[in-house]
Amino acid sequence: MPAETIDIRDIPPAKRHPTIHDAFAELDAGESLELINDHDPQPLFYEFDAEVDDFDADGYEVEQRGPGEFVARLPKE
């Protein structure tokens, strides 16, 4: 169960990654951030894997639920 869910489809693109990083930083260890996005967030995965020490890359999941709706779960170690 995610600690927080953010629908970033309505957030301007330039503010998406800072919003995601801020929300992830607020999580406790063992919690996850769930994102609803309009495209596959693969670049975000690589960014988190390279830059965020407490990102659990092995627990990352993404699911396409429909056209323009991808749901990703970013777990925190």
Rank of each mutant, 00 (worst) to 15 (best):
R9Q: 04
A57V: 14
D22W: 04
I6L: 15
Q64L: 13
F45H: 13
P43W: 04
P67S: 15
K15Q: 14
A57S: 15
T19W: 00
P12Y: 04
R9L: 05
I20F: 02
A57L: 09
T19P: 02
E51C: 11
P43E: 00
A3V: 05
E4S: 08
D7R: 04
A57W: 09
G68I: 01
I36Q: 11
F45L: 14
R65A: 10
F55L: 04
V62W: 06
T19G: 03
P18F: 05
T5F: 09
G68E: 05
L74H: 00
A3S: 13
Y60W: 14
L33K: 05
S32I: 01
F70V: 09
D22L: 08
Y46F: 11
T5C: 02
M1Q: 10
E31H: 13
N37I: 00
T5K: 09
K15H: 13
A72M: 08
I20L: 05
G30F: 06
E69S: 05
P43N: 04
P67Y: 14
P41Y: 00
D54C: 07
V62N: 09
K76N: 01
V71Q: 00
A50Y: 08
A29L: 11
F70E: 12
T19K: 03
R73D: 08
L74A: 04
A23T: 09
E4R: 11
P75V: 06
E4M: 10
A57D: 13
H21E: 15
I11Y: 03
S32Q: 10
D49G: 07
D56Q: 10
D53L: 13
Y46P: 01
R9P: 00
P2W: 03
P67M: 14
A3R: 12
L35A: 03
D56E: 15
D53T: 14
E77V: 12
P13V: 09
G30A: 06
H17W: 09
P75I: 07
D58E: 15
L35N: 01
A25F: 06
D7H: 04
V62K: 02
P18D: 07
P43A: 03
E34G: 05
E31N: 13
A57F: 11
T5W: 05
P41H: 00
E47G: 10
D53Y: 05
P13S: 10
Q64V: 08
E26Y: 05
A50I: 04
L44I: 08
Q64E: 15
Y60Q: 02
L27I: 10
E34T: 11
T19N: 01
A25V: 08
E61G: 12
